[in-house]
Amino acid sequence: MSLDRPVAPNPYELLPAVPSFTVTSEDVTDGAPLKDDQVAAEGNTSPQLAWNGAPEGTESYVVTVFDPDAPTPSGFWHWVLVDVPADVTSLATGAASGDLPGGAFHVRNDGGEQGFMGAAPPEGDMPHRYYLVVHAVSEPTLGVDADASPAVVSFNLAFKTLGRAVIHGTYQH
């Protein structure tokens, strides 16, 4: 069963341009299908990420995973990790379910949990894209708390993002 709808644009191309920097992953290959570990019904484990080359003046990071292909007008947020200290430049596989660095914290994903939710597109739907993004932030704290929605986090990022590092994986059920 396909929901027969157009492919959404890359949502990060719709935002004001900011410098890019590099993010890599031992668990996600850019543009390739996600491993079972990053699928909700399988491993439901946050991927390893490492980044470098963030713009000068970076005071903290926000890490997100977003699916623009979810059958909703607002896509689906799978992970929103806020206030990662500026001296942290990697997260281990499974970091979302362990001790978070410094004052970092999760806001609820669109599944209602604070943490990482793996890929979970409707069965038979088109391949979904999962954008893993590290946002370099101009302040030590984004200025939100754990009760903020992913949309509020994104709104605050619009004014405090110095740079963005993006990779994406795909998944089809």
Rank of each mutant, 00 (worst) to 15 (best):
R108W: 01
G112F: 10
A96Y: 03
P127H: 06
G118K: 01
V107L: 00
V88E: 03
T93N: 10
D99A: 15
L142E: 08
A119D: 07
M126V: 12
P122I: 03
Y130F: 15
G118P: 03
V144H: 08
T89V: 12
V88F: 02
D110G: 08
E123A: 15
D110Y: 09
Q114I: 06
D147N: 15
D145H: 04
L91R: 00
G94V: 05
L142T: 12
V137H: 12
V134L: 03
T141W: 06
L142N: 07
D147C: 09
Y131P: 06
Y130S: 05
A104R: 00
G111E: 14
P140H: 08
P121I: 03
G102P: 06
S138L: 05
Q114T: 14
G143K: 08
E113V: 10
V137R: 08
A92I: 05
A104L: 01
G124K: 04
M117N: 12
A148D: 07
P121L: 03
V107Y: 00
R108M: 12
G111C: 11
G111M: 13
M117V: 11
V133E: 10
G102R: 00
V134D: 04
G94A: 06
E139G: 10
P101R: 02
E139V: 15
H128V: 03
S90D: 12
M117L: 14
T141H: 14
P127I: 12
G115F: 01
P121Y: 00
V134M: 05
N109F: 00
H106G: 11
E113N: 11
P121F: 00
G102A: 05
D147Q: 15
V88H: 04
D99K: 15
A86W: 09
R129C: 13
G98L: 07
A119E: 05
F116T: 08
E123R: 04
T89D: 15
E139Y: 11
M117Q: 13
G115R: 02
G102T: 07
L142A: 09
H106R: 08
P127T: 14
G103L: 04
A96N: 05
N109S: 04
M117P: 00
S138Q: 13
A92D: 12
R108E: 14
G111R: 11
S138F: 10
L142G: 07
V133R: 09
V134G: 06
G102V: 07
E139K: 15
G143L: 07
G115L: 03
A146V: 06
V88T: 15
A92V: 07
A95N: 06
D145L: 03
T89Y: 10
V144L: 05
D125N: 12
A104Y: 04
V144R: 04
L100E: 01
V144Y: 07
D99C: 09
G112Y: 09
L100W: 01
G94N: 07
S90P: 06
L142H: 09
G98R: 02
N109R: 00
A120S: 11
P127M: 08
